[in-house]
Design a protein around this nucleic acid. Structure first.
Lengths: 220, 220
DNA sequence: CACTCAAACGGACAACTGTCCACTTCTGGA
DNA sequence: TCCAGAAGTGGACAGTTGTCCGTTTGAGTG
């Protein structure tokens, strides 16, 4: 049976959509270029919105009309990577024939890799999500896609009797939580763990755990 | 064997320590009182540091000398609750005779309860931890205590052959991650999960998982 | 009590975010 | 081509955080 996995909902806000005036498109391009340039030069955290506006030769009003806050701008910069990532992973998962749990392992491995590669932007996105924006981290299309993909894989694992039935909605969040960018960065840079250790230990914990749980249930 | 569990390292910065001048102690008290009053009246998020200073009749300089940022102030307000919580939990775990995994379940239950009760302050603490302060959430004494306690319980579970050997340092972080305040609040208020579901599902996932893994290893 | 100085104070100010609005420009239709 | 008005623009400004620094105060010492 070919698996059917969720597709990342393309986020129209915050990236070029069709009916956009020429000057607006131009501003957007200039803003994104400026941000990329400054981020490359000096890193993401130390660059502020005012500077980006100036580098882009665009007023504050224009800047904030396009991107509500720095997190939204960073999300737009990440848009291409996110799309590519989700498509690659989705196609891989739909095409290969491995059992659902093995696919989940692959998924977690790829997600850790994504964290590693995009840590600065992901960190900035999280930083911008405080106060009233706190839910955005979990409400955005990318996280929803991550969650739904894990849900589908877990459902298949349950259906295929790889694991006992469980609260898959909750489990999906719980399994993704250890890879949240704050913890990931802390483990990488403060605790000095390498990516290998993180992915290996997480996989063992989650997969042996889920798998093992079936054994126990099967036994009793 | 009586278990020996870590004690929360008392955080001397940010709360009354002995050698403090009378006027300084007075300012601190006024600041904390003002913050409590305003937070009670209008919630944590909408109150800013300027207002707290004004309500406390204390200059900005004095305010920030005591508490580097709003997160630190909130942490100080939480200090008493945190101390009480950690002591209650530690004493309970040291006194009862249950196997380590059952104790871990108790621990997670109590932690979820703590999240529930202190959500607004915990949220504000997290919000203040952006950019250069990002690691603080995981570096502070409370999180270190949570982590170390889980490490000890896992080590005992391994020693008692309740679970197979595993990377306990990593596992502790991973097990705590699903209860991070952002995710917790999202599940509670955006997804509409109730505390019961969160604790039950987490326990089943983690404990059946860990337990089950032993079965499998024992089997092969 | 007088003196000293480390500690504490407070308010001005610099930095940054995000909003507002008067003005300009693009686009499609007559 | 001209016009109307929707869409876009920029920069001033308000709100908030966090720093700086000249002034004041408390506590120990002689």
């Amino acid at each position: 049976m070919r698996r059917k996995l969720p597709v990342l909902e393309t986020d129209l806000r915050g990236d070029a959509c069709g009916g956009e005036r020429r000057d607006a498109a131009e501003s957007r391009r200039r803003i994104l270029d400026a941000a990329r340039t400054l981020f490359d030069e000096r890193g993401v955290d130390p660059v502020n919105m005012y500077e980006i506006g100036r580098e882009a030769s665009v007023g504050q009003g224009t800047l904030y009309r396009r991107y509500e806050h720095k997190g939204a701008l960073c999300a737009a910069l990440l848009h291409e990577s996110v799309t590519r990532f989700s498509e690659e992973v989705r196609v891989h998962l739909e095409e290969d024939q491995e059992p659902a749990l093995a696919q989940l392992e692959y998924f977690l491995y790829r997600l850790a890799e994504f964290n590693e590669k995009n840590a600065p932007l992901l960190g900035a996105i999280r930083d911008a999500a405080g106060g009233g924006r706190r839910p955005e981290v979990y409400r955005n299309p990318f996280y929803r896609w991550l969650n739904e993909t894990v849900v589908v894989l877990l459902e298949q694992a349950v259906a295929g009797d790889e694991v006992p039935s469980l609260d898959v909605e909750y489990a999906a969040d719980a399994i993704l939580a250890p890879l949240n960018i704050d913890l990931y960065l802390f483990q990488r840079h403060e605790l000095g763990m390498d990516p290998e250790r993180i992915t290996t230990s997480l996989s063992r914990l989650v997969l042996d755990g889920l798998r093992g749980a079936r054994e126990e249930h099967g036994k009793s």
